[in-house]
Design a protein around this nucleic acid. Sequence first.
RNA 1: GGGGGAAUGUCCCGAGCGGCAAAGGGGGCGGACUGUAAAUCCGCUGGCUUAGCCUUCGUAGGUUCGAGUCCUACUUCCCCCA
Length: 418
Amino acid sequence: MGAYKSDLLHVLSERGFIHQLSEPEALDAAAKAGTITGYIGFDCTAASLHVGSLLPIMMLHWMQQTGHRPIALMGGGTTRVGDPSGKDESRRILTEAAINQNLAGIRAIFSKFLKFEGAGGNAIMANNADWLNKLNYIDFLRDVGRHFSVNRMLSFDSVKLRLERQQELSFLEFNYMVLQAYDFVELHKRYKCIIQMGGSDQWGNIVNGIDLGRRMLNAQLFALTSPLITTSSGAKMGKTAAGAVWLSAEMVSPYDYWQYWRNTEDGDVARFLKLFTVLPIDEIGRLARLKGEEINEAKKVLATEATALVHGRAAAEQAAETARRTFEEGIIADTLPSVEISRADLDKGLGVLTAFAEKARLVTSNGEARRQIKAGGLKVNDVVVADDNMMLTLRELTADGVIKLSLGRKRHVLLKPV
RNA sequence: GGGGGAAUGUCCCGAGCGGCAAAGGGGGCGGACUGUAAAUCCGCUGGCUUAGCCUUCGUAGGUUCGAGUCCUACUUCCCCCA
């Protein structure tokens, strides 16, 4: 490790992106010699991407930063099939309309990390529906299918695990790896793409593509996988109680996104700074040496830098400032997430249960609100709510004309009368 | 095709002699302690207009004062035989 001559592998390696790599020397030499093209495939099963997809996005980002050409491949075609890797059960098949809608949302995210053609960069966004949807079954079997050995396909983990557990694996899903392999070949033909990256669970799929490329085109292709990122306590990234941490501001506010990173466990800070920010390595080294209480400074940097990448520098700094005022000075920052309510409701008196459950959505039901009150977890303007029947009225408005509702010590929402 | 088993709280795993809003975990949320961390300890973890009411144990019927539990049919999955 560390002996790579190309910027690309040097950077990816020192920042912790590399798990497995096929033929490192040959790839290193190619990346050193000139501009290479690489891709990563993304599902379009949801309307946005969440933190779990951040790692591959960052790999494409670094690829471009080190002078190469990244391709973000949208799985418009393969999403209609569903990858069986790591799944116990067949996935729900999405309609084509739903997939296209999801695609639009995902495009917007990518433009924050990559400079595309036409926007001053060389990055490409491709969609495998462009070629997969047009395939002719017989031609495909004869040109591509003949290169695949079923004996070998059965030996891949994604297939083997299903068979061993006697779980259904449909023929449709069985074909997923063939299609993904074909994608790689198609991207090589179209864009001279020679490297496919992905999570460590994608190794088998990628290697299939390499084999197919050799057989069909006599091309030398490469695989690079990233480690599966879990937190120090073993949880998968990107899921919180409230649901996935999405990368779009409509689904998760920049403030909440900042908070997600701010609450990183101590043991993850250095690793996350390398993976999820673009700070220089020596700066990260300095932050990583902070110990005890001081590590909070590193967490703030992590939060702000990671948020800036997705939501922009201004939004990130505002989130940091909101957090500073809320947590360190205990002031009510008017930039906290807020919900508008009607002044007339407040005039009549608004029940606390309704305020927390229906308006602020800090809890999911009146019942949960009651339980939290019993446990001392709800606060109005920083005063613990003791009574289920408490009414919020105009008198609860602070000097700033808002009412601050809190769940626990960390989650706050402002009610703004209109 | 024949025989045997299984499906439980809408996050998951799982106990449940006819009186059950249903044991126990994990996860999650809240509280205490801290550094907006981890670990630890405590509480909570179906809904509502909460002395009560309503809805939940694969689906649909039936027996019973009363069914997650018994009976019948169906669906899905697993095991054994062919």
